[in-house]
Design a protein around this nucleic acid. Structure first.
Lengths: 244, 244
DNA sequence: CGTTATCTTGACGTACATCAAATGTCGTGG
DNA sequence: CCACGACATTTGATGTACGTCAAGATAACG
């Protein structure tokens, strides 16, 4: 279904971007650590970059590493044998990968755009936790937040209409970008319509038609297929909440 | 949609069931604690019982407590304004309630059958964690497991057919009961068809018809509506995995 | 400036929802 | 013990939101 290029994993040597100066630090679990702890963290990290479409980890592989995204976006995919795909999320800068993991990865991680991650050996997580209790507290906090998000997504997948799903998605994307950009009502979607469809439990055609209808209703404006202006945010919030 | 009886919450005095002798301990997060720690835990706990249909916590209420189920089953519900309902899970004995929680509860908890819980004030969780680091580790482990389960459910809700959903559900119920009972291929479903439908993102009629078809196909046998025999488990596993 | 992938739009099909009885099932009181 | 509701479940007839199939229209790219 998805052609996989040969992997050209770029492992960069040394510490090109020490943790203390990492732009993703504020949003990540690393914010729990102090500067001298970050030095130790940096020693454990391997920086990798992935090009669009490349696979970071494969569903079912034994979980040897965890990751922290420092730039770009990924998609978390689960597949059924016949190719049906469900995307669990689109983690971006600052996102920690490795919580929803037992012995093997429960999903594949693929780069959507140019993706940069810090890779850590999983066993070292234990030593890190043992040394810095604040880190474990931060992980628990992150896991709790992810659970809340996951349950909101279950409601969406089980009970919302296509229109409600797309509205919810646009707003969640807007929110994830407002962390960086100001409160403009503009969203850039780094992922394809296929990705969006597989995230929302729909087909590309339904996603496209639904966006078209939101546009006809003057709730959004499309500028190309990746750039969307939110014209009536309140109305969109109401739709996303199922109030229609 | 669901008539709510007046609450007759039974708060039992003292320590009718000290943690050290708690039947649910082995399966719960409390297993991380040693006997002298359990004494302190017991001092903090309030035992409550709820009758079928009673509400333990309401979605949106400020999250003052967390709970540990010691007997019976609950359902975790999220509602849309027009009454559409999604059930996030059916926690039973040993299950910890309070991970997928921020300041307010993200779902309602309702008793399915006779439900018994240990209630703890949420702030005390912090002191408990501070005193017993093993407890925090256990919570993180539990949260990770719940995240994996939640993602499996997202795959079900987003991409599986009705037949695959029902097969998955029966197997998950079987597994949750095998912890206690031996490997018999018999499942007792404490929840109604409506609950099952709201858990699987279907309607009662579709659940009923799908069970009927599985029965016609000699994969299961129905004995009353709450008791089900798994006749061909391997086949059911294949269906649940989407291999048809 | 063709070539190719992605996105949109239209016509039609279907799995599941909705509407509507019929059929258990269980607790209660006569 | 049995009759009687009050519900839960099953079963049937019909509807529909979304999926599937099939062209076009745009946009990305060498």
């Amino acid at each position: 279904m998805h052609i996989q290029q040969a992997r050209h994993i770029v492992i960069e040597p040394g510490l090109p971007e020490p943790c203390a100066r990492c732009g993703a630090r504020a949003q990540s679990v690393c914010s729990a650590l102090e500067s001298h702890e970050l030095t130790r963290l940096a020693e454990m990290a391997v920086v990798q970059t992935f090009h669009p479409g490349q696979t970071v980890v494969e569903e079912g592989d034994s979980a040897a590493h965890f990751f922290n995204i420092t730039a770009g976006h990924a998609r978390l995919c689960k597949l059924l044998p016949d190719g049906r795909r469900q995307i669990m999320g689109f983690p971006g800068r600052g996102h920690f990968l490795g919580l929803a993991v037992t012995n093997t990865y429960g999903f594949s991680v693929e780069a959507i755009d140019e993706l940069r991650v810090c890779r850590f050996a999983r066993p070292k997580l234990q030593t890190l936790i043992a040394d810095f209790p604040a880190f474990e507290a931060r992980l628990l906090q992150t896991a709790q937040h992810e659970l809340v998000v996951a349950q909101e997504q279950m409601l969406l997948l089980g009970r919302k209409t296509a229109r409600e799903r797309v509205a919810s998605f646009l707003l969640s994307q807007l929110q994830s970008q407002e962390a960086c950009a100001a409160a403009r009502a503009h969203v850039r979607l780094p992922m394809t319509r296929t990705d969006i469809a597989d995230y929302l439990g729909l087909t590309i055609e339904t996603v496209s038609r639904t966006l078209g209808r939101l546009k006809a209703d003057k709730l959004i404006a499309l500028d190309g297929s990746a750039d969307i202006d939110i014209l009536d945010r309140n109305r969109l919030v109401a739709i996303a909440a199922g109030e229609t």
